[in-house]
């Protein structure tokens, strides 16, 4: 039981880390540009598909991953320059509609290019093993690598945002966009950079999970909405909030699915508990969001409104 718990705990952390990579870029875009981007999930999906293509081209997952990063950065740049930058001054409704249109285009376009059937990336041999945890329990190395990569990214973001010039501008932009522009910062350029960088993080996440998940056209959407939940819980614009929210959502979702039915069995009949657990578990993160919002409408780390 404890080893199962530990295993699910690690799975939860891994899922949370993944959500963080996606939510980090999204929360900056929301917070600094006051911009609703529904198309962030499809960039994550593009990252996974590109990883598939580059890995088969180069024959190496590592090289594939390295190529995916600049490629998704480019995707972000193209999207920003062609569509998003015309939408910053528009009402949220227009932003929602235009990015919704992009989701339709890209989701269908991916099927035109790669087909509708799920794809996969072979696990790199070096990382395909597993390490012992407690007793006979083992954990796949690759999932640990995902956790490590995510933590390193989080640390990197923390250093960049907290201790560099661009990070300072970014924080300033998040608290008062007009003031930063008035101080002479080229806000348009700042937006482009943030946007492309956020896209690269999402693409990175997509490439990282390609060996452990199936790559299919629907993969971006579920993650997008969970990333929204993460951002709402953490507070819009706060990378720290996104980190805390992502871990919380990842853990609650994973542990709820595996232990919810077990816990319910303590208070009701096994059959009913199984059914109730299956129904309740996927709803848990949304209930968590509702509870947090009821207490703190602007999220855990959001500025009070």
């Amino acid at each position: 039981m404890t080893s199962l718990f530990l295993l699910q705990l690690l799975n939860g952390v891994q899922f949370g880390i993944l959500l963080f990579l996606i939510a980090a870029g999204l929360t900056l875009v929301f917070g600094i540009m006051d911009f609703v981007n529904l198309a962030h999930g499809v960039v994550y999906m593009i990252g996974a598909y590109l990883a598939v293509t580059f890995t088969s081209m180069t024959g190496s997952y590592g090289l594939g991953l390295l190529l995916t990063l600049p490629a998704t950065l480019l995707v972000g740049l193209v999207l920003e320059l062609s569509v998003f930058r015309r939408l910053y001054d528009r009402p949220h409704l227009d932003q929602v509609l235009a990015t919704f249109g992009l989701v339709m285009i890209i989701t269908e376009g991916v099927q035109v290019i790669w087909g509708a059937a799920p794809l996969s990336v072979p696990m790199p041999e070096l990382l395909s093993g597993s390490v012992p945890l407690i007793g006979a329990m083992r954990y796949p190395v690759f999932r640990l690598v995902i956790i490590a990569a995510g933590l390193l990214t989080a640390l990197g973001l923390y250093l960049v945002i907290g201790h560099t010039r661009i990070g300072m501008r970014l924080r300033a932009g998040a608290s008062n966009r007009a003031m930063v522009a008035a101080l002479g910062v080229d806000i348009g350029k700042l937006f482009t950079v943030i946007f492309a960088f956020g896209a690269m993080l999402a693409g990175f996440a997509g490439a990282m999970v390609a060996p452990v998940l199936t790559v299919d056209p629907g993969m971006g959407e579920q993650v997008l909405i969970l990333a929204f939940v993460v951002i709402v819980i953490g507070g819009i614009g706060s990378v720290r909030g996104a980190f805390a929210g992502a871990l919380l959502v990842g853990l609650v979702d994973t542990l709820g699915r595996s232990f919810g039915p077990i816990l319910l069995r303590a208070v009701m009949e096994p059959a009913a508990a199984g059914q109730a657990g299956r129904v309740l578990a996927p709803m848990l993160v949304y209930i968590l969001m509702a509870v947090i919002l009821a207490v703190r409408p602007s999220g855990l780390f959001g500025a009070k409104t």
């Binding site: 015309r86 009402p91 227009d94 235009a98 249109g101 989701v103 339709m104 285009i105 989701t107 376009g109």
Partner: peptide, 22 residues
């Protein structure tokens, strides 16, 4: 692959109408 065309129409209308779609 009609969603591509539908999405394209949506994006273009939002971008090129003066005050946005609304």
């Amino acid at each position: 692959h009609w969603p591509i065309l539908f999405g394209l129409i949506l994006v273009l209308v939002v971008l090129y109408s003066r005050d946005g779609l609304s």
